[in-house]
């Protein structure tokens, strides 16, 4: 093979080799080349030694007041409507990990959706038959409205991520529950 060090495009391969980021077959190929190429061996040894030297430069700790200073600037006159405290929704754990095509194969998502359906059904029944009163009616209604609105939030997020298939059926159920 041509020596990879001779052009910068393929020299990237040597850098990747030193970072151990190459596929096994490319690694083996380069190692065969290096066994007979003193220039590439020298590059490899020099680069590994250099990175060892650069590792000496550790990062600095962030000063304590960094976030406080930032938020005080964010909350300044041009900050707009912004809440510093994370608003943790009860369903946010569903989205803590990056989504993948197999998201629906995880049991948690369908279970949570089933839960929302049951809740929506319950709220519809609740309105028709009248619930067992354990708290003043107004307070219960406010809670129910908040819960339904939060569920709608979740449905909006779900439908934007999983497409229209989910959107139709669940959105209808939740809207029915709210009406």
């Amino acid at each position: 093979m041509n020596c990879p060090i001779e052009n910068t495009e393929s020299a990237g391969l040597l850098l990747d080799y030193c970072r151990r980021k190459l596929a096994p077959d490319t690694t083996a190929f380069l190692e065969r080349h290096m066994s007979s190429c003193a220039r590439c061996r020298a590059f490899r040894d020099g680069q590994i030694a250099l990175w060892r030297s650069l590792d000496e430069w550790e990062s600095m700790p962030v000063s304590d007041g960094f976030d406080r200073r930032l938020y005080s600037r964010l909350h300044g006159p041009d900050a707009g409507n912004f809440s510093e405290k994370p608003r943790v929704r009860w369903w946010s754990w569903l989205f803590d990990a990056p989504l993948s095509a197999s998201a629906f194969t995880r049991p948690a998502v369908p279970l949570a959706l089933a839960g929302v359906m049951i809740l929506a059904g319950y709220l519809v029944n609740d309105r028709a038959d009248g619930p067992v009163q354990i708290a003043p009616r107004d307070a219960v209604e406010v809670e129910q409205v908040e819960t339904v609105l939060e569920d709608l939030d979740m449905l909006r997020l779900l439908s934007s991520r999983f497409g229209d298939a989910v959107h139709g059926s669940f959105q209808d159920a939740a809207i029915e529950a709210r009406s």
Binding site: D67, L70, N81, F82, S83, E84, K85, P86, R87, V88, F95, A97, P98, L99, A101, A103, S160, R161, F162, G163
Partner: peptide, 30 residues
């Protein structure tokens, strides 16, 4: 699957920030 499903997690957080979610900004900052 919608285009948003292939976005990286941080980009999705940033879209929530765009819609006013301070919690997502705090996560990105952290």
């Amino acid at each position: 699957m919608g285009a948003s499903a292939v976005l990286d997690y941080d980009a999705r957080l940033m879209l929530l920030v765009k819609h006013g979610d301070g919690g997502s900004f705090a996560l990105l900052l952290n």
